[in-house]
Write a protein that binds this DNA or RNA. Sequence first.
DNA 1: ACGTCTTACGCTGAACGTAACGATT
DNA 2: AATCGTTACGTTCAGCGTAAGACGT
Lengths: 245, 245
Amino acid sequence: MQLNDLEIFRQLYELHSINATARALGFAQSNITARLQSLEREFNVQLFHRSHQGITPTKAGTEFYAYATAALKATARLRAHLHPDNARPQAIISTLLFNYLTSYRHVLSLQDYQYQLLSSTAIHTLTNTRVATVITYAQFQQPDYQPGPLHYLPAMFLRAPSATPSLPLLINSDQQCPFRARSLHFAAHHPVTTQAIDSWAAIINLVRAGQGVALLPAYLTQDDTLTRIPGTPGYRVPYRTYTRQ
Amino acid sequence: MQLNDLEIFRQLYELHSINATARALGFAQSNITARLQSLEREFNVQLFHRSHQGITPTKAGTEFYAYATAALKATARLRAHLHPDNARPQAIISTLLFNYLTSYRHVLSLQDYQYQLLSSTAIHTLTNTRVATVITYAQFQQPDYQPGPLHYLPAMFLRAPSATPSLPLLINSDQQCPFRARSLHFAAHHPVTTQAIDSWAAIINLVRAGQGVALLPAYLTQDDTLTRIPGTPGYRVPYRTYTRQ
DNA sequence: ACGTCTTACGCTGAACGTAACGATT
DNA sequence: AATCGTTACGTTCAGCGTAAGACGT
């Protein structure tokens, strides 16, 4: 069992759906099926009942949930404990990645770093920084920094569930932002009006309020305040962690 | 992080040695180095100081140990909880495998099954059993039983640390036992006297008491009451889990 | 039709063993 | 020389995505 399996299980338990979990975490749903099966095989117990309406936890599944949440919490606590305030290194990261990695994937803990949220453009034009870690979509060619493996942030065009058709497409002002680039490319090939906004919080609020649509991380569909716009493409926005020395 | 990493870490912490951990768990020591490094990378912290005398935990390592033991305990507790007494399926398994998998690897929990310890010969000649699980070195070709993946039990010739040379080689009486087969093969090509004993507990006791040597699972070297006999070969004894239906 | 979950299948990278290395006792 | 941990390298298989299937609504 991997630690990631516990995260996947938590999503399965909370979303009652293999499909929704796969979308939210950016996996293929066949893969979530397989991970769940391997978990059930390892513990030799059925964790969910399957139906065509989704999945519902068994008694064992509910017990497993208590275990999984406790283990994830203990791991987060350990991370906090290993990196006490005074020794906390600095990290530079884009806003959406920060939300995704801390609130959602729980791969990064608030206690791991002192975070500095910067735009992709700002990160790209950075020179002579000395922070321990930089997480960004942009190329980050600096001496002393080692690129980590490529990862992907799943993204799609979202709107409020109740939204009317033909809302403006809201686009971030950050010149180097890959969400901006993909949004502009889409807009160039489809009949939509666009609107630049320079804050992600503002964009997400506007989309939630039904005032516009935007290209956003897929995990925001999780709580059903946003849904994917049918017929629009999905993306996997690549990013990398660069570590000093 | 895998659950197995926690087990490896526990051994590292308790044995203060990468080499000893590798031997005990049946891994190449380069692999233990790599697993430890990946653990340190994942949590971004050094867990052990390395020296030519072995490894000593850092402060972070000690904190990690508390976490690891708690997590392993919680997992064992979950396994117990998922398979309450009344619903416990039956498993047939060889003695040495039982000890290895329950006491040592903690892959099997006492609470998972009602165990029935049988000799390899008895398992091999079994017909018409209906137990849920059979774990054995032998081929087990029965309708309704699905073979699982092949695993290996690392084994080597062991003696007491203080033992004198040229002790008799103790061999199990179980005709189908792969330890017996390998011991006999070794004896045929080397000048040793042999002695058949029909109980593993007796063999291990005799070896501990310095009355003989025997081919035994490698993990028994863990507590330093037994050591490997230099110049003798090591084996990886294959076994499989067969599951009903 | 559409949305569930499952199965089939090919690919890739992590995990493994072998072996060579460097350093200390 | 023996023993320790590290590095290099080739292999293998779990985990991944794509795609098709089976089943209900």
